[in-house]
Amino acid sequence: MIPEPFVPVFYALVYILVAPLLGGLIAGIDRKVTARMQGRVGPPLLQPFYDVGKLFEKENAVVTATQNFYVLSYVVFMVVAGALFFSGGDMLLVIFAFTLSHIFLVLGAYASYSPYSHVGAERELLQIIAYEPMIILTAVGMYMVTKSFFVSTIMASAVPIILFLPGIFIGYLIVLTIKLRKSPFDLSTSHHAHQEIVKGVTTDFAGPNLGKIEIAHWYEYVFLLGVIWLFFAWNPFIAVAAILVAYFFEILIDNTISRVKWQLMLRSAWVIAGTLGLVNLGVLYYLRMVVP
């Protein structure tokens, strides 16, 4: 057995090692399911791994050498954020590390001073401001139910959190669409070929740098789906089922709804998610604080 103080470190290590495999697999399933929805056979399940493997075989062409630094920082802080989350750290700290890592991606795109990257970077920023409030409200909601920001405590809680936070959960699913770069909110870059600004933020990354961005996405997937787990933490089976259903739902939305403009994205993320979240929290607050 692992001695008590090393348990978080152990979980962090497990995340660092397993998350890319899991994330890549999720991406593979995503592509397969998407293809089936479109009546195609789709690529092999392990295709994302082949893609990244290929990218690392290519030449590292950069517009400016600083891009390497920003991309590396993006990956590193994404891993830090996820590792903090899975080692049971403070949700808010996780969110801030998460934002930090995305800022690095945006800066990498800005650094190239290229029109497509630039537009992608601006849109990516808009996406960040669209989802960030909702993610913070999610953390706050978890706190109101479990009295702790620490993931370890939230995980250990026997309360079915989802019953207290249905509004927050729906809000989270909406911003999850932004985070997973799914249509209708895939403004800054898209996994599909139908992006109107070439490839948005990732336009001027090539070869290994693009591969690193892809790996960071995998880490991100696992982290984001981990948050869904928290809502159902009291029962692992339901949690896995919920993640599967939620993810399927995201793919369905991706394939059925067309991309929106940034105004609508910002508004829907802030207004719908914000109201749902806030009403939910307000009711909870009233029940907890005012009615003793």
Partner: peptide, 23 residues
């Protein structure tokens, strides 16, 4: 704080992006 704070991220980052773009 959540909504205002995210606006902060936006205006600082785009300024940051401006100064670090390599021309």
């Amino acid at each position: 704080l959540a909504f205002g704070g995210s606006a902060t991220v936006f205006f600082w980052s785009k300024w940051m992006g401006k100064i670090i773009s390599v021309m």
